[in-house]
């Protein structure tokens, strides 16, 4: 093939450019991680290189003065629960939209899809008032509900397209066997839907896990804080303590980085699938 015969020069040029790019990606993250392992003095005397003395002091102090167990627990509960309900709710709705004919179907579909181009942030004042009325202010349940509402438009969009592609014959043969509609959904559609569900889960994971806006507006108590909110407040609190501050930033990023490195293939696949259906 023509491509493989490319001159060596071009190829090395590509490698050089991409390597520079990779360095600009990695260096700030690398810097954050190594700095969090340095002693306070060394941060000023030896800012670039690897630490001469590795220390976990920053992390130890951080764990002592704050409740990271609680923050992570809250973040995990919020992210996982809301993604779970996004998947259930949007697949049910998509199934109805994709497989049945009924009055107002197109309208309902576009009603959902409209949420894709309207950022939920613009409804913050209304959401705040609703949450106060429901006595969910300062409670992570409010975050879960918001993220579900936020995730439904995209979920319906992707899943409706996907369910449409599932041949009707499969459902019909089940119907002949006397299966009820919920059973068809559960037994036939859901198993075939798994790649699409994974895509929806992954696309929602990043914005939900990292959301800072709604916790800032709705959460007050320490026991209800999520990781991004805790990060912002701890950062403000210990801004002058460098060893600690880099530990705070690393603490917020490491779990996601590790999660991504393990599942990066699925991330890319899922997002690519989402990309071309989404927006």
């Amino acid at each position: 093939m023509a491509r493989t015969k490319k001159p060596l020069l071009t190829k090395s040029l590509i490698y050089i450019i991409l390597s520079i790019y990779a360095v600009t990606i990695f260096y700030p993250i690398f810097l954050m991680l190594i700095t969090s392992l340095k002693e306070n003095k060394e941060i000023f005397t030896n800012p670039y290189g690897l630490p001469h003395v590795f220390t976990l002091d920053g992390y130890i102090k951080l764990l002592k003065i704050s409740n990271y167990g609680i923050y992570f627990r809250n973040s995990i509960i919020v992210t996982v629960t809301s993604i779970f309900f996004i998947l259930v709710i949007s697949s049910l709705a998509s199934f109805a939209i994709a497989k049945y004919r009924f009055f107002g179907k197109r309208f309902i579909y576009f009603y959902f899809i409209a949420g894709l181009i309207v950022p939920i942030k613009l409804g913050t004042i209304g959401i705040l008032q609703t949450m106060i009325k429901l006595h969910l202010f300062d409670n992570i349940t409010s975050l879960i509900i918001i993220y579900i509402a936020m995730g439904i438009p995209f979920g319906v969009f992707i899943l409706t397209d996907f369910i449409r592609l599932i041949p009707e014959e499969l459902s019909n043969s089940a119907r002949i066997d006397g299966c009820s509609e919920p059973r068809i959904f559960y037994k036939i559609i859901v198993p075939l839907l798994q790649p699409a569900l994974a895509a929806v889960a992954i696309v929602n994971f990043i914005p939900i896990w990292n959301d800072f806006w709604f916790p800032l507006i709705l959460i007050r108590s320490d026991s209800m804080k999520t990781v991004p909110l805790a990060t912002a407040l701890l950062y403000g609190q210990y801004e002058t303590n460098f060893g600690l501050i880099f530990a705070v930033l690393s603490m917020a990023s490491l779990p996601v980085i590790i999660f991504y490195l393990i599942l990066s293939r699925q991330f890319i696949k899922g997002l690519t699938a989402g990309a071309f259906k989404g927006e």
Partner: peptide
Amino acid sequence: KKSLLWLL
């Protein structure tokens, strides 16, 4: 497909 299933 399997790994996605696993993830799910």
